[in-house]
Amino acid sequence: MSGSALTYAIIDGVLTGSVYALMATGLTLIFGVMDIINIAQGIFVVLGAYLSYEIQLHWGIDPFVGLLITIPTLFVVGIVVERAFMSRLKGPEKTAMSILVTYAVSLLIEGSLNMIFSVNDVQINAWYVNRSFKLFGVYFAYIYVFGFILAVVLLTALWALLYRTRFGASVRASLADQTAAALIGINVRRVATICFGIGTAVTAAGGMVFGATNAFNASSSYDLISRLLTIIVLGGMGSLGGALVASIGMVMLEDVVGVVWSPVWSTMTFFIVLVIVLSLRPQGLFGKQLARTA
């Protein structure tokens, strides 16, 4: 194993991990506010990738510029899904039921995408997708660097929204205790709907980068969702910072193990770390210890 391979593994881990953070953030936000495990998050990522692909193919709009269209579009999709399905889930079985309902939503969207686009794999192409630049003797792929910058910008914006705005205060109050939040006049229902929209909207960005770095079809969502779920469990369900740290940590660990040892052991090593963390901190790295009340 050469030193350069290890350097690349670490760089890849940080750059790629940040993109996974974009995808996982929505998942953990939705769980944090709504107690919903959104199995459809993987298909939303793929939907975002298809939207970027189509906008570029038919209108010639650069995928990054196209986010100005795809992010609001997925926000609306999220709102519609929340109002149509999630808002009807109530009671103590809500979280368990949400897995089934969002899985059904996922299958519905997957089937529709297969009918529209067929199962043939496609990939987003732009001048920066396959190119790279050299810095300190190391090649940096433009797409991963741009994806990293995008992740930093959007996660910072999300942080500002949550910690520097009145709406953010409502979200944080709902995250902490929905009943108490409702008692002080916060419209928890409305906050939940918007959070679901935001959680879906950020996948547009993650989906765009995913679609530029991978050939994909609607079935690509299956591999994604299992990875996203493990990220938010490690980071702590409902923790935005946890999603970021776990994403980068997980991808970097897998990449380094893959290079130093063997890719076959990458995933297993990650799960060993996950089990150790959960046995020491069952709530995940940054999760809250006390269970919230609905």
């Binding site: 391979a5 890849d12 770095t213 890719p263």
Partner: peptide
């Protein structure tokens, strides 16, 4: 695998 980058880089 969902991310082949590190394997391909190796």
């Amino acid at each position: 695998v969902t991310d082949y980058t590190s394997i391909a880089d190796k």
